[in-house]
Simulated scan of single mutants.
Amino acid sequence: MLRCLAIALGLLISLGGCVSVNYASLAPGSFSGRVFVMWVGEGGSSGDGNFLFVPDPNQPLIFRRQNPNSPGAFIQPGMMYTDGGSIPRIAQVFKGLSPWGYAPAYMIHDWLFVARHCIVDNKDDGRFKDVRNVDFTNSVEILGEAIRALVASNQVKKDDVAASAITAAVGSFVAKNQWDAHGQCEDPISTIKPADLAQVKAALPGVSEARLLHSFNLAPGTPRVNPGRPAKIIATVDFGR
């Protein structure tokens, strides 16, 4: 995941913006719960490995917009793959653009794209009911509000340059084209490999399979798997209840 952000950041200068959102004017949302970043295997040339965003089954990550009547006012993302190298290497030298610095905000934004692609492909299901009415402009606003929430909760340091750049990048023509793309629905049954799911289950002992699958927001019918070697938890972001 993070591919939309990575592409947009890489081409922002040459393509300019599509949706203009003033980061400074956005009202910060709020996070609750906890999310893990888990390493599940070696990566390719673009990153440091294969990783999963994993909501805590006991305290799933939830993002709330300040206005409860806004589209996507309540978002509970599911488990997704990510790549530590998805932020372009040249961008990582700037403060605030490390791969994991804004991980919870990226997860919220990526979940919106996962939902959008399945809605566009008519493969929508109950997992996306809370974000079904989110449009592209809303997705840009939500990412900015999520970053502001991280700053407000002292999870990251205030950095208006990086935050503004990220918000502008996800409003680019490149990101808009990805938002509207067809044939991109990612079925978690096939995209979350059983071996990787088994590693995650082994890393979170004592939690029932039903609770895991519900918290991970995986589609009904996800195959049962037997725990294998545990995944390595490389980062934990905790917002409490």
Rank of each mutant, 00 (worst) to 15 (best):
Q76E: 14
Q76Y: 06
P77C: 07
P77E: 06
Y81E: 15
Y81I: 13
D83M: 03
G84V: 13
S86Y: 10
I87G: 02
Q92D: 13
V93F: 15
F94T: 00
F94M: 06
F94L: 08
F94N: 01
G96R: 12
L97M: 11
S98Y: 12
P99Q: 12
W100D: 03
G101F: 03
G101P: 01
Y102D: 08
I108H: 03
D110R: 13
D110M: 10
F113C: 05
V114R: 02
V114G: 05
A115T: 06
H117S: 15
C118V: 03
C118L: 05
I119V: 15
I119P: 05
I119R: 09
V120S: 11
D121I: 03
D121G: 04
D121L: 03
N122E: 13
N122K: 11
D125L: 10
F128L: 01
F128E: 09
K129W: 04
K129R: 12
V131A: 14
R132A: 14
V134G: 00
F136S: 08
N138G: 04
N138I: 02
S139I: 00
L143T: 00
E145P: 02
I147C: 10
I147R: 04
R148D: 07
A149D: 15
A149V: 14
L150W: 01
N154A: 14
Q155T: 08
K157G: 15
D159E: 13
D160R: 10
D160I: 12
D160W: 10
V161Y: 10
A162D: 10
I166M: 13
I166T: 15
A168G: 11
A168C: 12
A168Q: 11
A169F: 07
A169V: 06
V170G: 00
S172A: 10
F173G: 08
D180G: 13
D180N: 07
D180M: 08
A181Y: 00
E186S: 15
E186T: 08
D187G: 07
P188R: 10
I189T: 10
I189V: 14
T191C: 08
I192Y: 00
I192P: 01
K193L: 10
K193M: 09
P194T: 09
A195I: 12
L197P: 09
A198V: 06
Q199A: 13
V200C: 12
V200D: 05
P205C: 14
